[in-house]
Write a protein that binds this DNA or RNA. Structure first.
Length: 413
DNA sequence: TCTGGGGTCCTAGGACCC
DNA sequence: TCTGGGGTCCTAGGACCC
């Protein structure tokens, strides 16, 4: 059946939301009209550009760029720290507005939604509805969006990338040769920095050239990814719009340390700090994890990871932390480190832990300790209970973590 | 001057089994 | 002085997204 899919993308999301908030609180200047960025804290080595205004873009400032480099390009650059709870509120407001038009709204990321409008346009054309959504975002919510319209998610998403900001674009299948094929191939969804040089070597520079390339040749050079890209270049995508909470596959927390870590004691504190957060999130979801992974990054920025499947799934902080310590010790060669991560996967429900299989004193006591700590942190703030080891260590007792309702993201359609 | 943090999926190679 | 081959599980690392 022919579908009508919209992709709604907030223009310069974090920056727009900061601008709206500032204006609502008495600011005279609209941050969107001056060179400005949202960026992390440079002193703690988190200093990269997370979002930029359109005037900042004119200075060739790029998302992901380090802040000192952005400042070189534009000495008067205004830099704001991120405020994620504000972004979540703005994101929710957008989702709620979209749900007035169709129940089939999928939050793809904090600032992007897909919606299936098929059969949900009362007395209006799809374009009129899309236009109305765009206008209402600007007028009622205060920030602008781009809306892409087509018959599948891929094409709708490509359409919303066309001219910005505050624009609506269609990219129906019959418009592919004219609107999609002339674009540089690097603008295609999933054509990333590793794939592009491979395509260039095959003399593929536009999406049209990719669309007309041999799928067998692409598969030979890019494996299954080559076939996916060929389909996308031809506008082929049947993925459904999936509303509601996503089934989570794994959760992890990681952090870049403000200083290089060269000893086991500090490394263990970071692992504990990260495990505290990630285990708390796991318990909050009522889940257990079967696999623990530790990742580290050294000062040369090389990544290393080590993981192990547990004999029995767990959500106990101490148990998971002990495994993380073992994994770290087995992996670490002694080189100075600047980044740590703890990741849990193969998640299952925690119904099992109630059964007699785990019904021994030791396990039960540890579980009830976790539960008490979670309860206190919930009612008195996350800093209400911290481990003594962190005192005077200079290391935060709870590292990383996402807001309760931070939307999960996907990397595929 | 120096590169975040949250995810998902894919692939290759080794271990192991029959 | 011979060592097949298919299947599954596990791990490390890579690629991509916002």
């Amino acid at each position: 059946m022919k579908r009508t899919i919209l992709h709604v993308d907030v223009n310069s999301a974090y920056l727009s939301w900061e601008a709206v908030y500032a204006l609502q609180h008495g600011a005279r200047v609209d941050l969107r009209t001056i060179p400005s960025v949202v960026g992390g804290d440079e002193k703690s080595r988190h200093g990269i550009v997370l979002a930029k205004s359109i005037p900042a873009k004119k200075f060739n400032i790029k998302t992901g760029e380090v802040l000192w480099s952005a400042r070189m390009k534009c000495p008067n650059l205004v830099v704001l720290p991120p405020s994620y709870s504000l972004y979540i509120q703005c994101s929710n407001a957008l989702v709620n507005l979209l749900k007035e038009y169709s129940p089939l709204v999928e939050r793809y990321s904090i600032d992007e939604c897909f919606m299936d409008l098929t059969g949900h346009c009362r007395n209006k054309s799809f374009e009129e509805t899309a236009w109305e959504i765009k206008e209402r975002c600007r007028e009622e919510l205060g920030f602008t969006v781009n809306v892409g319209i087509s018959s599948n998610k891929l094409l709708a998403k490509m359409a919303s990338e066309f001219e910005k900001p505050d624009k609506m674009h269609t990219l129906y299948p019959h418009e592919i040769p004219k609107k999609l094929w002339p674009l540089p191939v690097r603008e295609l969804f999933l054509a990333g920095p590793r794939t592009i040089p491979v395509l260039y070597k095959l003399n593929i520079f536009t999406i049209g050239q990719l669309a007309h390339a041999s799928p067998a040749l692409l598969k030979q050079h890019l494996k299954s990814h080559g076939i996916t890209l060929w389909k996308y270049a031809n506008g082929i995508d049947n993925s459904p719009v999936t509303p509601g909470e996503r089934i989570i596959k794994g959760i992890g927390n990681s952090t870049t340390t403000p200083f290089d870590v060269d000893n086991k004691k500090e490394a263990f504190l970071y692992l504990l700090s990260l495990t505290e957060t990630v285990a708390m999130r796991l318990r909050d979801k009522g889940m257990m994890a079967r696999v623990v992974a530790v990742t580290i990054r050294d000062t040369q920025l090389s990544f290393f990871s080590h993981q192990r499947k547990l004999a029995v799934p767990s959500n106990n902080t101490d148990y998971l932390y002990n495994e993380a310590k073992r994994l770290f010790t087995e992996m670490w060669q002694g080189n100075p480190l600047r980044h740590f991560g703890v990741h849990l996967s193969e998640l299952t429900g925690n119904e099992f832990c109630q059964t007699s299989l785990f019904d021994n004193d030791f396990v039960l006591r540890r579980q009830s300790l976790d539960k008490s700590i979670d309860t206190i942190r919930l009612s008195h703030g996350s800093g209400a209970v911290i481990r003594g080891a962190f005192l005077h260590s200079g290391i935060p007792p709870l590292c990383g973590g996402v807001h309760e309702s931070f939307p999960n993201m996907r990397s595929l359609l």
